[in-house]
Amino acid sequence: MSQNLFFKCTKCGYITERKKVEVNNYVCLSCGYYETLDYKKRLDMIIDQNTFTETNIHNDFHDPINFPGYRTKHEEILSRSNLNEAVITGSGYIDGQKVMIGVMDTRYMMGSMGVVVGEKITRLFEDAEDEKLPVIMFIASGGARMQEGIFSLMQMAKTSAAVLRFSEAGGLYISVLTNPTTGGVSASFAFLGDIILAEPGALIGFAGKRVIEQTINEKLPFNFQTAEFLMDHGYIDLIVERKNLKSTLSDILKIHDQENNKFKLEDNIGSINLLINS
């Protein structure tokens, strides 16, 4: 059986022609499971054809605490999937509307955040502020990268402050939580979006399920730490099916385009002044 012609669902094992799954946006035709996407597939799905330009390309390897086995692991992934880090950043268009976009890729160490990931995301927000563009982040990450020790923890503070500065400047940040969004990434920029979307069934949470079970010694509720659970408890705005993601993002961008708003911030302040003066 050719691996390229057929596709096996990660969850239920259903095997079908790859083309059919591709047309279905890598959602299983049998059980509806959402396969985790690599960054190329995600960009193809969201960004207008041939409009993506990558920014802040990083070619080195960064090992701040000289952690045993880290470099070997990096080289393995690099040779297997030609991937140098866990996030790709750049600019592109969604239905003709320009955005800055970051896509995390779990093939690189579970999409974990080390110094390079933190720096790329921080620069994405800084570049977006300079160019007055919205930011869209596709999150897929197990959390902070243990192999970079305290330096990876500090990236949580750094990226959160980057969102703060961007937000203070009036920028729109949409974060899309996909499977998985956990640990130090969920506890920093992932949950700081003006609008937080999620894919159906995505695992979203802070602590690992095994740790929770060990700590509390009780059965976990149905749906625990899924996108649906998080929405029920008020922590995400909307669950969007993959096939509707691009059009939903496009509509959100359109609604935030100041050309479509007669009550722009400056105008609004002006009219309030007018009222006070009259």
Binding site: A187, I204, F206, A207, P221, F224
Partner: peptide, 11 residues
């Protein structure tokens, strides 16, 4: 790490 903490938005 617990069910209530996750429910109440620990992240």
């Amino acid at each position: 790490p617990g069910v209530s903490a996750e429910k109440n938005g620990q992240a």
